[in-house]
Design a protein around this nucleic acid. Structure first.
Length: 419
RNA sequence: GUGGAUGUAGCUCAGGUGGUUAGAGCACCAGGUUGUGGCCCUGGGGGUCGGGGGUUCAAGUCCCCUCAUUCACCCCA
């Protein structure tokens, strides 16, 4: 077990194989889809100046209580990024991407940090894949990012994800709704839970997704009754486009989201195999964000996806990197020949392994049986005659192959083996 | 931040009412085959029994504290 002071900090973990390779496979799958949709990969720093996140979520738990904020030796106020959207927005402003050919499509994949109490599928360091689409107000932009996210989830093996969506309105219609909502809940303040009384003052919209006061909220005013025409048309078009693409999507009138930079569209996808309220990905439209960070105002939509959760929700893990497929075993005195042969096979694109523990042939073959499909046996009279033994570890059959024909022979064998 | 459960080998776990050198299975290593794995047999390495304190002649076992893990709440990916 070891000493506690030398273990991973709470809420973090080491990714060992095969999980580590599964993450890599998910990274490739996600970025492949993003590239097909035309998204460029952006890598922002893992920490930012704290105001980048503060500006974006002043009233959210994420930046208020859950961020890893620190002052470095030079006195800079820094924060480990708790989410991707604000950091990408900062980059968008900093690099003047408002003048790039529009729209601008950016995606990211990397660790995020939140200081929460860890539990199933929630970590203090977790990996998110996300995409941000700048420069389009069109509902098709919302539909595009939703479809990118669902394609990733679906092709990762979690079939037919169901998107929940809502519109929290715009500057025109949201204040009217908020007013009605505050009035409604103020009248019933006495029967609200403690948290909701705080929400009532700080972030009234969040009253909608309280899990305790479900009865009360049933009668609360519905956003849909307050949408302006433009907002109504927008969400209708988003749902229409996503639906037309064959993706299940339905409105959840109680869906509002934790970050307070959203405008109009918010969406989320969960999964029964995870906790009921645990989201696989979530996102929305945030037309005011770039302006809040001092840049040109620009419409934008995006999402963040929890890779740790996605992998743990998959019925079968993503295809992990395979172990070395060829093991070059050697007879006593031929360890260097085996070492060099393995190297030359790697140069030819094969995954090869050779013993460097000075083990007996028996021990080498035992090891080979675990990590390879073919074992080469180097040494003895065969080697002197210019051949190498090739043993099929599954079948138990063995042939002698001339050394100069070996590479081609192996390539063919492994090809067939794969198919 | 709040509440519950759990901490014995790398992993999964045994260790009634406290009693000599703490066990098993799997995994790992070696031998049984002077050059051939997967099965079998034999042997071996490996443990601050989470940590600290207390009760006792004696604590893995009882008590207290602490740390960690885990599940739920909160919130989120």
């Amino acid at each position: 077990m070891g000493f506690e002071e030398f273990q991973t900090p709470r809420g973090t973990r080491d990714l060992l194989a095969p999980l580590s390779w599964q993450f890599e496979a998910m990274r490739r799958l996600a970025l492949e889809w993003a590239a097909r949709f035309g998204y460029d990969l952006i890598e922002t720093p893992i920490f930012e100046k704290s105001p980048v996140f503060l500006r974006v979520g002043e009233s959210t738990d994420i930046v208020q209580h859950e961020s890893y904020r620190f002052t470095d030796a030079g006195g800079d106020d820094l924060t480990l990024r708790p989410e991707g959207t604000a950091a990408v927005a900062r980059a968008w402003v900093q690099h003047g991407l408002s003048t790039a050919p529009q729209p601008v499509r950016l995606c990211y994949f990397g660790p995020m940090f939140r200081r929460e109490r860890p539990q199933a599928d929630r970590y203090r360091q977790h990996t998110q894949f996300g995409a941000e689409l700048y420069g389009s107000e069109s509902p098709l932009a919302d539909a595009e990012v939703i479809l990118l996210a669902t394609r990733v989830v679906d092709t990762a093996g979690l079939r037919n994800p169901e998107v929940r969506v809502n519109s929290i309105g715009c500057e025109e219609c949201r204040p009217r709704y908020r007013e009605a909502l505050v009035q409604f809940f103020t009248e019933r303040q006495a029967s609200l839970c403690e948290d909701c009384r705080v929400r009532l003052k700080q972030n009234p919209l969040r009253l909608l997704d309280c899990k305790q006061d479900v009865e009360i909220r049933k009668e609360a005013p519905d956003l849909a009754d307050y949408w302006c025409d433009a907002c109504r048309d927008h969400i209708t078009a988003v749902m229409g486009a996503v639906g037309a693409a064959g993706q299940t999507i339905r409105r959840d009138p109680h869906l509002v989201r934790g970050l307070d930079y959203y405008t109009r569209t918010v969406f989320e996808v969960g999964h029964p195999s995870l906790g009921d309220q645990v989201a696989l990905f979530g996102g929305g439209r945030y037309d005011g964000l770039s302006g809040a960070l001092g840049g040109a105002p620009a419409p934008a939509v995006g999402f963040g996806m929890g890779i740790d959760r996605l992998i743990s929700a998959l019925p079968t893990p993503p295809e992990a990197e395979s172990a070395p497929r060829v093991y070059v075993a050697h007879l006593p005195g031929f360890d260097q020949q085996a070492f060099l042969l393995a190297l030359s096979l790697r140069e030819r694109g094969m995954a090869a392994d050779a013993d460097i523990l000075g083990r007996s042939l028996k021990a080498q073959l035992k090891d080979a049986g675990r990590r390879a499909v073919l074992a080469l046996i180097v040494g003895g009279t065969e080697w002197e005659n210019g051949t190498v033994g090739v043993r099929d570890l599954a079948q138990g059959t063995q042939d002698n192959i001339p050394r100069d024909a070996l590479a081609g022979y192996l390539a063919e064998r492994l090809q067939g083996d794969r198919a």
